[in-house]
Design a protein around this nucleic acid. Structure first.
Lengths: 342, 342
DNA sequence: TTGTACGCGTTATCAA
DNA sequence: TTGATAACGCGTACAA
């Protein structure tokens, strides 16, 4: 039973397994077992323990448990680009599915590239079972540093391809995905495509631009031109597209702008309509990638590619549960969502 | 020095303060002190310790530290409505500022109302220093349950007013904010306002609707009509507004729709333009609340009210640092951002 | 099925 | 300023 707090003790009274044990008339370890799913314990003992725990309001302390077992059931999610609305979708899905499977989530906002390693360090100090990178600035330099220090047990790159063998990458098959988009664009008869890419990080990055350009070259013998936006940000994409095409003759404009993701695509639609004063898709069509919620707004009605985030999140759970080798999780495939923009 | 892992020991070798102490020629407690900002330790000792730590790659274990000190430097953020894009803004700001001040963030996705108490319980098992509620389903019943169990040390309601004395509410002065909006709407000469409210949770909720209606009544002696959307979701708002005004005569339509927040306002603009086939603001004006990034898109150009999230987040830090009494943090004030929609 | 050393890595507190 | 004792609350491994 919890001893009444003495005036000298500023610490709030905590109910421990010992208290429950004493109350239920058993030992601390029986209490421990009662709270584990698969443990050899008689149903009678468990019942008694659980009743006592209920009475006393006992719940196991996860800090102490983590310390003793060297397993925290904690996962760190590192994010650096909050301007992309797709992040919210991923966060929702990941936190939900992780929680369903018994993991808690540490959300870490990495302020810049240098900050990443300190964030990783911080996460490791909490003994996270894994750190998941969901951003754009996580290049090989960062990965190498993180892995070199053996700071984190599992380093996972989510929704992005990584070849680093010490890293687990969970993503969809971008080559196939972009090919799907390219095929659609070709089939619809567009002839002067333009590719709008995101930040050109040094590595571990998306190959969408290269894939699309190569695909087009294979088919038609010409490389479409392209531009890049330094951040996946709708507003910035608007600016880049507006400036890029300002003063172009109608004939020199593309008839479709293929965007690396929806954040860029939304900005592109804005630019076409409000800066160039043209129509989508009649004058210039647009495709995106991600299928963010706004893609469905009547303003945009974006034709885009939806990644199977739920399946990917479940893949993450698998990784967390696994100990040894694992299948390749870099080949998820999604689906093209055809709306009005292309 | 870390002893080489014996084949029997599956646990990865960890460098502890003892290792550093031995290496540096001191005691564990000196090492501990070297890592604290304000601790009585000679600069010489500290230097020696830090050098040794650097050599060995030692970092303090936060789990053990939390367990021993009964302070986790961990804050749980509970969120239940990820469809509101403003959440992403809040998450970015909160995680950034908390991290800057030494707190880590646990992001918890509470699936439904019942789940909240179990989420709170879970957070308490990690000994979080505080739980911050950033959602819509956290009504008095939930709060009472949470507090009754004394599960969490500090329960903070963020961006929402709460009168519960055991709860710390950090929000802006909604009355003043809405009055600002109302004044603007009146000054612009609108005469047939309509209020679009969000989910009508039982308590700890926003008084924006009541405030606006009363304000208008005071001024003109009539209560504007209103409707409510069950979730702060752009798409749902679109549906509600479309249905509500379908078949109205032009003369019966409002000349301005005041929305409880931007998520609703964006959907409202969509509905006016694409469902009713009218113009914003010429036929119907719209105001929002929050100033989400998209509010600045040329499609929307939303006139809206921006809360001082940064200041509010810093208020949260103050709360975390404080021990005793605290000023009232429910009177932050923001500013009206005038764009084109009203 | 149940009970017992011992350890996890750190911090509070007091003594030197 | 430094060192030492005693927690913090639980898990593992093994013995009863």
């Amino acid at each position: 039973m919890p001893t009444p707090t003495t005036p000298k003790d500023p610490r709030p009274e905590t109910i421990t397994a010992d208290d429950v044990a004493e109350f239920a008339g058993g030992s601390r370890w029986t209490v421990n077992r009662a709270f584990k799913q698969k443990a050899s314990i008689s149903t009678k003992s468990r019942k008694k323990v659980m009743a006592a725990a209920e009475q006393l309001g006992y719940v196991p302390d996860l800090l102490a448990a983590s310390l003793a077992s060297d397993k925290s059931n904690l996962v760190a999610l590192l994010v650096d680009d909050f301007s992309n609305p797709h992040k919210l979708v991923m966060l929702e899905r990941l936190t939900r599915i992780l929680r369903k499977n018994g993991w808690d989530t540490l959300l870490v906002n990495t302020l810049d590239e240098n900050d990443t390693s300190s964030a990783l360090l911080n996460a490791s100090q909490r003994r996270v079972d894994a750190a998941v990178l969901i951003g754009i600035q996580y290049n090989d330099k960062v990965l190498a540093a993180a892995l070199g220090a053996r700071r984190v047990r599992k380093l996972i790159v989510f929704a992005r391809y990584s070849e680093n063998p010490d890293t687990i990458s969970i993503c969809c098959d971008d080559q196939a995905a972009i090919s799907t988009v390219a095929d659609y664009v070709m089939q619809k008869g567009y002839q002067r495509p333009f590719f709008l890419a995101g930040p050109q990080t040094s590595s571990a990055h998306l190959m969408r631009k290269e894939t699309f350009l190569n695909r087009w070259y294979q088919e038609y013998g010409v490389k479409p031109s392209s531009a890049s936006v330094p951040v996946y940000d709708q507003r910035l994409a608007f600016d880049v597209v507006s400036k890029h095409f300002a003063g172009f003759n109608r004939a020199d404009l593309p008839d479709v702008i293929v965007c690396e993701n929806d954040a860029l695509a939304l900005g592109t639609v804005d630019a076409i309509k409000y800066s160039l004063g043209l129509r989508v898709p009649e004058d210039i069509a647009v495709t995106g990638f991600d299928d963010v919620p706004q893609a469905d707004s009547p303003h945009y009605l974006l034709t885009t590619y939806r990644q199977p985030i739920t399946a990917m999140a479940e893949g993450l759970v698998k990784v967390l549960k696994s100990h040894g080798e694992l299948e390749d999780l870099r080949k998820f495939s999604g689906e093209l969502v055809v709306r009005n923009s292309a």
